[in-house]
């Protein structure tokens, strides 16, 4: 039985299409890289100034001056480039990235994303999230379905300060794969054996069900 995190990551990696340029946000998304086959044709963009970042090197060749945005040590693939932060975000704002996977405090039925500020409690800050969310061609949110108190994170309307409006295409939780559509949230896959009623009970936003894959 896979853990909640393993279910999210092993499903998330399928979203990465060959030949694409992908940014993986701090938290769960950066771990998706470890699920990619070593020969997979993808360019991982890290907003601290790397194109073609790759998995951590062997201990003897780890470079303390080469990290991803979460502080993890990375290596470089052939064809990599290194650049300053202005160039890195020019790449993002000019929509040269195909996919960003990003974490969420809250995500809602309109595709709004909140992931930078819980006033008075935990405000990690914006980082690269606003520009990535506003300008990447496709945004996939990776999140546990509920928070540590068991409360829904997938809401009718976000209550926390927004990172960006109407930016999310798909939500991958530990329970389901959900698309944001003009008709609201549509469940495409279930990642666990759960009834529609039980999944809806853990979700504030109204769900419709159009299961494509088989339940695991």
């Amino acid at each position: 039985m896979m853990s909640a995190v393993e279910r999210i990551l092993s499903r998330a990696v399928i979203e990465i299409t060959p030949g694409s340029i992908v940014n993986l946000g701090i938290g769960l998304p950066t771990q998706v890289m470890h699920y990619l086959p070593d020969d997979f044709d993808v360019q991982i963009h890290s907003e601290n100034g790397i194109l073609c970042a790759w998995k951590q090197a062997e201990p003897e060749s780890m470079d303390p001056f080469l990290i991803d945005a979460s502080g993890a040590y990375v290596s470089l693939r052939e064809g990599a480039s290194l650049f300053d932060s202005a160039v890195s975000f020019a790449m993002i704002r000019r929509a040269r990235l195909d996919l960003t996977m990003i974490g969420a405090f809250e995500v809602d039925a309109h595709g709004n994303l909140a992931n930078w500020k819980i006033p008075g409690k935990f405000s990690p800050g914006i980082g690269g999230a606003m520009e990535l969310a506003q300008k990447t061609k496709r945004i996939v949110v990776l999140t546990t379905h509920t928070d540590k108190h068991g409360l829904p994170k997938i809401l009718e309307t976000c209550r926390l300060p927004l990172t960006a409006k109407a930016c999310v295409s798909r939500i991958i939780s530990d329970l389901a794969v959900i698309d944001v559509t003009d008709q609201g949230l549509v469940v495409r896959e279930k990642l666990v054996d759960i009834s529609n009623v039980d999944l809806q009970a853990l979700t504030e936003a109204e769900l419709t069900f159009a299961i494509e894959g088989k339940a695991l």
Partner: peptide, 27 residues
Amino acid sequence: THIGLNKVVIDHLNRGDIDVEFHPQGM
């Protein structure tokens, strides 16, 4: 832009010991 890896500074922010101004990183 981001202090999420530093709980001590987040505590300083929550207590009002320091003024923190967040910008989007590319901005």
